[in-house]
């Protein structure tokens, strides 16, 4: 029912192998850092895509939930809790806050929802900068230790001290998140999300509890943001209020839209392509947001399906043409 053409599958395998081998051909530590950050942002953007792309709710609080995950891990590991416990706990806190915020705000529609979530985002940012006892204020929390090694039979413990190990940790998280999203989206459950996005009164009329559906999607998306934030904190070994900033939300938004809303690879592609592109276009650094702002407008007007969505449409056209040819001959 939900199958993909063969060349798309091949492409995914190639990308997967390339991603596995990346630590052995990445040119330098700096670029490696950029790549790891992209993987983490790819996780977060995928979470935002669930809410924004599939369920059609324009959340502008995603950076805040990323920040809750980051601060959660930072505070808990500082208190001596193992990272492996702190990460799921922080993600659960993100999800729990998401539940409260979602229940409070998801009755609002459209612009109201966007502005209300933006308000929450700014609140989180202000709190992060001012609740000095908990968050360390504007300086944040720094000097976080590495995750404790995992004991592993035969090979000995897996250490998490190198960039490579951090890369594989992030990559594993990304793959798990994408797999989970794949299951959710390509199912009747996923269709009910899209039903809410596409036609809420009709979704309601066929027996879908639209409010509950939106809340579930919002909570799940924010759980994913929390995971991404937690890994980000341990990777940077620090966290500061900028990890909750609405600018981060806007970055995620750029990744989702330019990569392709409501496609699974889109946000990940966006999270990779854009920062990597910026590294090669260093001289444009100052004009970064100028270009992305303009690009965001142009893409949403002319290619609202984004890069991956555009490719997909091309794919469908080719398939349709092939079908036509075979039926003619």
């Amino acid at each position: 029912m939900f199958t993909k053409p063969i060349h798309t599958k091949l492409l995914y395998i190639v990308i997967f192998v390339a991603a596995l081998l990346l630590p052995w051909y990445v040119p330098d530590a700096y670029i490696f850092q950029v790549v790891i950050t992209s993987v983490i942002f790819g996780i977060a953007a995928s979470g935002m895509n669930l809410i924004l792309g599939y369920t059609g709710q324009a959340t502008l609080a995603h950076g805040a939930f990323f920040g809750i995950g980051a601060y959660g891990v930072a505070i808990m590991t500082e208190a001596g809790i193992s990272f492996w416990l702190a990460l799921p706990a922080a993600a659960l806190i993100s999800a729990a806050v998401g539940l409260v915020v979602g229940v409070l705000t998801l009755r609002t529609k459209g612009a109201y929802f966007a502005i209300v979530t933006l308000c929450f985002g700014v609140i989180a940012w202000i709190v992060a900068g001012n609740w000095i006892e908990l968050t360390g204020g504007h300086n944040g929390i720094y000097g976080l230790g590495d995750p404790t090694p995992i004991p592993f039979p035969f090979f000995g413990p897996i250490e998490f001290t190198t960039q490579t190990s951090m890369y594989f940790l992030s990559l594993a998280a990304l793959l798990v998140v994408l797999f989970a999203l794949y299951r959710l989206v390509y199912s009747v459950f996923g269709l009910s999300l899209m039903a809410v996005r596409n036609n809420e009164p009709l979704a309601d009329a066929v027996g879908i509890n639209t409010f509950a559906t939106k809340v579930i999607s919002f909570v799940a998306g924010n759980f994913i943001a929390g995971i991404a934030g937690g890994i980000y904190a341990i990777m940077m070994a620090s966290v500061s209020p900028s990890a909750t900033s609405y600018l981060l939300t806007f970055n995620f938004l750029i990744f989702v839209i330019l990569g392709g809303m409501a496609t699974l690879p889109g946000p990940v592609f966006g999270a990779f392509a854009i920062p990597v592109l910026m590294e090669f276009l260093q001289f444009l650094q100052d004009y970064r947001h100028l270009i992305f702002g303009a690009l965001l407008i142009a893409v949403i007007i002319y290619f609202p399906q984004g890069f991956v969505g555009g490719l997909r449409r091309l794919n469908q056209k080719i398939a349709a043409r092939r079908k036509q040819k075979t039926s003619e001959s």
């Binding site: 059609g56 324009a58 459209g110 612009a111 806007f250 100028l290 702002g293 407008i297 609202p304």
Partner: peptide
């Protein structure tokens, strides 16, 4: 869809802010 207008608005916001910055 309305959601596209919000996104365009966010785009304009980023554009204007960095325009002033530049």
């Amino acid at each position: 869809p309305h959601i596209n207008a919000f996104i365009a608005a966010v785009g304009s916001l980023l554009f204007l802010e960095s325009f002033a910055m530049v």
